[in-house]
């Protein structure tokens, strides 16, 4: 199956003197984290299916600097940013899509000041346009009638006001989209943002991801849909902590769509 994935790099496009339609910014989680790699592949399958001419930076990609910046290390962030911008500008990149809301937010909002101006889309927004343009079709298939709740990633939702694209995709699966009590602009964080992913939480009486998982379980979903590799990890851990692995799956929106069509 995997040998069917077409993942050209910017360097390869350059060698042929061509420009891809869009650059897929994979991100660190999408490149290295075992769970997130599955999301990356699901998204690539959809890009392949829709015949999108995309490219990745591959080994030329480096951390956007988001966790460093939110931890307070502005030096490291700007070093990363400037290095990445140099690479992106050298390839004359105009449009970027990413499956990570943290990369999305950083490149879209914090790079322009430093000389990196691109049109940046979250993968759910990109998939939505593919759908609108008729380049991709979504069949309900195996998710028809399933109870799916969407967990808003802070850096997609509140941080950038993107609430509808992922929901519209889920509805296209003919699934029953159910909302948690705290959703959209009131969505509760999964607990990973602000560099928390990389450290133990401070002393408290509960972990944030468990609290959020409980909120999700309250609406009795069969699937918790996520749009962020970090949220995905946190919610998956939450489900494990609640011993609900056999009843509830945590899946990225891209995975849902790819699975629905048996890609």
């Amino acid at each position: 199956m995997s040998e069917l994935l077409k993942v050209p790099t910017m360097a390869e496009f350059m060698a042929q003197g061509k420009q891809p339609e869009v650059l897929f910014w994979v991100g660190c989680a999408g490149s290295f984290d075992d769970r997130a790699k599955k999301i990356t592949k699901a998204f690539v399958k959809l890009l392949n299916k829709a015949n999108v001419e995309f490219a990745v930076l591959g080994t030329e990609e480096s951390c956007t600097g988001d966790p460093a910046k939110r931890a307070g290390n502005e030096f490291l962030f700007q070093m990363q940013a400037v290095t990445n911008i140099e690479v992106l500008n050298a390839y004359e990149v105009k449009k970027i899509v990413t499956a990570c809301p943290h990369c999305f937010n950083t490149i879209k909002n914090e790079y322009p000041d430093l000389g990196g101006n691109y049109e940046v889309m979250h993968h759910t927004q990109f998939l939505k346009t593919l759908l609108d343009e008729g380049r991709l079709t979504i069949e309900g298939g195996k998710y028809k009638g399933k109870r799916i709740t969407f967990h808003d990633p802070c850096y997609l939702g509140r941080a950038n006001n993107v609430y509808e694209a992922p929901r519209e995709l889920i509805q296209k699966l003919e699934a029953e989209l159910i909302e948690m009590k705290n959703c959209k602009r009131n969505g509760l964080c999964c607990g990973a943002g602000g560099a928390q992913m990389f450290k133990e939480p401070e002393k408290g009486d509960k972990d944030v991801n468990v609290e959020r998982t409980e909120q999700a379980l309250d609406v009795k979903p069969e699937i918790i849909a996520a749009g962020c590799p970090f949220c995905n990890t946190m919610m998956t851990d939450g489900i494990k902590a609640k011993e609900k692995e056999s009843d509830v799956a945590v899946m990225d929106v891209a995975e849902l769509i790819a699975n629905a069509q048996d890609l």
């Binding site: 790099t9 490149s31 790699k37 591959g58 600097g65 931890a71 490291l76 450290k199």
Partner: peptide, 22 residues
């Protein structure tokens, strides 16, 4: 985490050259 970013461009200790292995 920050040392990792500085040394190998990711918050985890993976080699940047392995970024496309997936």
């Amino acid at each position: 985490m920050m040392t990792n970013i500085e040394n190998n461009g990711a918050p985890w200790p993976y080699n940047q050259m392995d970024r496309l292995n997936w």
